[in-house]
Design a protein around this nucleic acid. Structure first.
Ligand SMILES: [Zn+2]
Ligand SMILES: [Zn+2]
Ligand SMILES: [Zn+2]
Ligand SMILES: [Zn+2]
Lengths: 168, 168
DNA sequence: CTCCTAAACGTTACATGATAACAATGCAAG
DNA sequence: CTTGCATTGTTATCATGTAACGTTTAGGAG
């Protein structure tokens, strides 16, 4: 459990599908991510306020992205806020602090499963069958000399192993 | 001129910046892309109608992406249409036929400089300094076995060589 | 050439996604 | 305590994208 998922995926890319596409102990999955978020914030001084913490928990419920307004609906139902900026600010905080990522193709957000694994240039595998999204590590090959890359967006849409097998 | 830019960039990635980031004969750049678009459409039976052709020309004016409403403003000024669906339909046609691409990070569209170079899984280098975008070829490494990739979005934001050198 | 059909176009209305701006509140350092 | 700054609450508005439906047009069948 000490190995990064994105690294282990690299090491034996041929064997194991990412955790998000497999049945797994999701409770400990969530607990680990929350734990990591807490310690990251404690370390950096970032304030994981109630709304921010709750949004992270909501995002962590499934390995699938949620739109800002989906998150907002949840917050509203729980009395934590009803106006767009509430959701966007919390999501912005999480993204800025590496606790969540934005999926550009979907205009949606997903919790980072391993926020303490630093320096990750994340790539996302988006299954159009089940809607799950797995975060893996990607390095772009062949960037021309002279272009200084600051941020990358790498997203692949397709079918996960389970959805490929399933009878349509 | 027979070599694909995206291939040549791969072959000597260390030497030449992509054309979009260099001064070049842009008129012939445009002429080539229009030529390629014409023959692709002739071949496939797709109809490059006046609005569609004009939108492609507009996108080709610079190696930079334009939002749908920017394009629409141009069309409106020329009396070619004033309602969003006009722009979105033309852009959709161009994207579907490989004559333009959508840049997800920017909610914007850019003309494909080499639409006849087939099978391209394009990647985009986005310069935040000058706003130019270069299209290069990218293959994603290390996709886990079992995930069937259908479409990719690969975008890198940063600074092109010229903008890195320029004194802020 | 005429008729027919499918594609393209024009327009209305709406859905969805995101942010600017400012007032009110909480909170911690000095 | 008080002063400053981050956070929150709220309003209003902007930006992006699409469903739906009627009309026009191009181009092939007869
Ligand atoms: Zn899980
Ligand atoms: Zn799936
Ligand atoms: Zn050019
Ligand atoms: Zn530049």
């Amino acid at each position: 459990m000490s190995t990064k998922e994105n690294l282990s995926f690299r090491q034996d890319a041929a064997s194991t599908p990412p955790r998000a596409f497999r049945p797994h102990d999701h409770d400990s999955c969530v607990a680990g991510a929350m734990q990591a978020a807490e310690s990251l914030c404690a370390e950096s001084g970032a304030r994981l306020t109630p709304v921010r913490r709750r949004v992270l928990e909501i995002l962590l419920e499934g390995h699938r992205p949620m739109g800002a307004y989906d998150v907002l609906a949840r917050l509203d139902a729980e009395g934590l806020g009803s106006k767009p900026p509430v959701a966007y600010r919390a999501l912005g905080f999480l993204v800025d602090n590496g606790l969540a990522h934005r999926i550009e193709r979907l205009n949606a957000f997903i919790a980072c499963p391993r926020p303490t694994d630093d320096n990750h240039a994340p790539a996302f595998l988006i299954c159009r069958g089940c809607g799950s999204v797995a975060e893996v590590s990607a390095t772009l090959p062949g960037i021309p000399k002279g272009f200084r890359v600051e941020r990358t967006t790498v997203e692949a849409e397709g079918l996960c192993a389970a959805c490929t097998d399933s009878p349509e």
